[in-house]
Design a protein around this nucleic acid. Structure first.
Lengths: 106, 106
DNA sequence: GTCGTGTATCGACGGTCGTCAATCTACGAT
DNA sequence: ATCGTAGATTGACGACCGTCGATACACGAC
């Protein structure tokens, strides 16, 4: 059979793990919902952990776990105020994500 | 202590699994690289499975596995021609993803 | 200091993922 | 029909993920 297919000119390509890391942080329905809840807030507003528990129908431990994933990805920010942790969206990070998407798909 | 934090007015919120599904398909460095390789092609060009094996340094089975994930998410398209499967990017799907991102982050 | 409360972390559980060798399938060539 | 090859699928493995209860931490009230 003809050996027409593979060009063979391409060498090993470094895998893009920055974009994949951001996508991974969003690759869960619960976390997308968390982001949507934060995005729906007005300027200056925020939500603490207990605000998520009932709407998401998840335990406090699980909510905290998801918030940490989003925090590690830089998609949300935390401000500790007294006993409470207040979370807000990092819109600049989403802008960055949009630019990554534009770069991936030319 | 004050019970100032949780508003308590919010009820259960349906989780957005469509966006999460798309993000999940992109939540792997190998698959991001595959997308980038396909995005770098000129109009009318395509790549078959064997084109990915060497650059990604992965077995044929693994490459096929990743391509299937992207195919199921609708991010790439497959055209069978003889023995070969030729893959191309589905740019409309990426446009849809961009709109989803715009909706999530308001 | 002690007590109570909001949050973070730990340990465990079942489920899914990425990977490969091996196998199966589909097609062209002979 | 038989053979060779490109690609898809299967089965297995270790690693990671989402979830929870239990525990640890940090801070305010007292």
């Amino acid at each position: 059979m003809a050996t027409q297919c593979c060009s063979g000119a391409v060498t090993t390509i470094p895998s893009d793990s920055e974009a994949a890391g951001l996508f991974k942080a969003l690759a869960d329905p619960t976390r997308v919902t968390i982001i949507e809840m934060l995005a729906g807030l007005d300027e200056g507003e925020d939500l603490c952990v207990c605000d998520f528990e009932e709407p998401l129908d998840l335990s406090q431990a699980t909510v905290s776990h998801h918030l940490r994933k989003l925090l590690d990805a830089g998609l949300i920010r935390r401000e500790r105020r007294g006993t409470w942790s207040h979370y807000t969206l990092d819109r600049a990070r989403f802008e960055h994500l949009r630019h990554l998407l534009d770069r991936i798909d030319a």
